[in-house]
Amino acid sequence: MSAGTALRARVDTDDIHAVPLRHPWRWVSAAAVVVLTALFAISAAGNENYLWHTYLKYLFDQRISKGAGVTVLITLVSMVIATAAGLLAAVARMSENFVLRYAAWLYIWVFRGTPVYVQLVFWGLFTSLYPRIGLDIPGVGLLFGVDTKPWFTPMVSACIGLGLNEGSYMSEVMRAGILSVGQGQREAAAALGIPRGKMMRRVVMPQAMRVIIPPTGNSLIGMLKTTSLVVAIPVSVELYVRVRDIAGVLYQPVPLLLVACTWYLAMTSVLMVGQHFVEKHYARGDARASSGRQRRAAADEDGEKA
């Protein structure tokens, strides 16, 4: 038995009368929140202006559920585009080539500095601005040309517009995650002859994911709600557009907006649960290291006291 353990064993626990610190205002505030929430729920349930019968009628309407599926599809595709664009912009921002560095900065500056609704309007007008895209070399002629209308459908324009806008924000998230990995690990990988691409995949990115995942999850949830802005293109089968069209026919916007809010809450709740488990997966190594450091620190402290 060490000296520190023997010293703690001699302490008579019967002489210790620990009194927990009381927090009466916590209970008062909690009770106030419960009462106010209950009062609001009772008031809303009895308010005929909400038109709850219309809400229940259209909550699981087939048009609404299909619109929710389209919303999820737009969100996932746009997030894939945003992740790819963000990663490329982040790598370009850290490049030693000043052309790539300033091109990435220009992309981030433009897409972060202008409203996403305005950007979606321009993407909706893309086929009018550029009805045909091709490579025309002076003196040689047109090498090839493609009509844009069959390719840039409203769905495609919505995904590209949302993805490139979100990619400008994701680039800073990616850059922060990459920079969070110590320079020494990159130098060690370079000293071992590991190619830069493999180093990013095997050394840097697995550690950077701990920093990247939380804000990326928030961006995904924000993207899900931002899809309501594709009304600017418009995508006629998206959830909010469906709700708006039905409300326009019924002249009852409130219950249909509640239907939309319910679907958005359900979808974001699923994404939040998924984000929790992904964060937990990438934080496992860090949690083990942290607990090990804490045990060593506690052992050192006991040795100093002894």
Rank of each mutant, 00 (worst) to 15 (best):
W105P: 00
Y58I: 08
V140W: 11
F152Q: 13
T226E: 11
N165M: 01
Y50Q: 10
L73P: 00
H17P: 08
L162R: 05
G46V: 13
I221C: 06
R22S: 09
R175L: 13
R10H: 08
R288C: 06
W27K: 03
V173K: 03
L125C: 00
V254C: 03
P215L: 12
A289K: 03
R202K: 10
I64M: 07
V259E: 07
G292F: 11
V173S: 01
A3M: 03
A30D: 03
R201T: 10
M79P: 00
T37C: 15
R132V: 05
I212L: 12
L129I: 15
F277Y: 11
V91I: 15
R63N: 03
V140G: 04
C159P: 05
G69Y: 08
A68E: 06
I160R: 01
A84W: 02
I137V: 13
H53R: 08
S290I: 07
Q252A: 15
D302R: 15
I16H: 10
S290R: 15
D136A: 09
K280T: 06
V173M: 12
R10T: 14
T148V: 07
M209K: 07
P253M: 06
L76M: 13
V11T: 14
F122H: 05
Q185K: 02
V140R: 08
S236M: 12
T268H: 02
S168N: 02
A18Y: 10
W27R: 04
T114Y: 09
V235G: 05
Q119N: 03
L39E: 05
W123V: 09
F152N: 09
I74K: 01
R186F: 12
M174R: 02
G145D: 14
D302T: 14
F60T: 12
I213G: 04
L36F: 13
G303R: 14
V19G: 02
M170K: 05
V181Y: 02
A68Q: 03
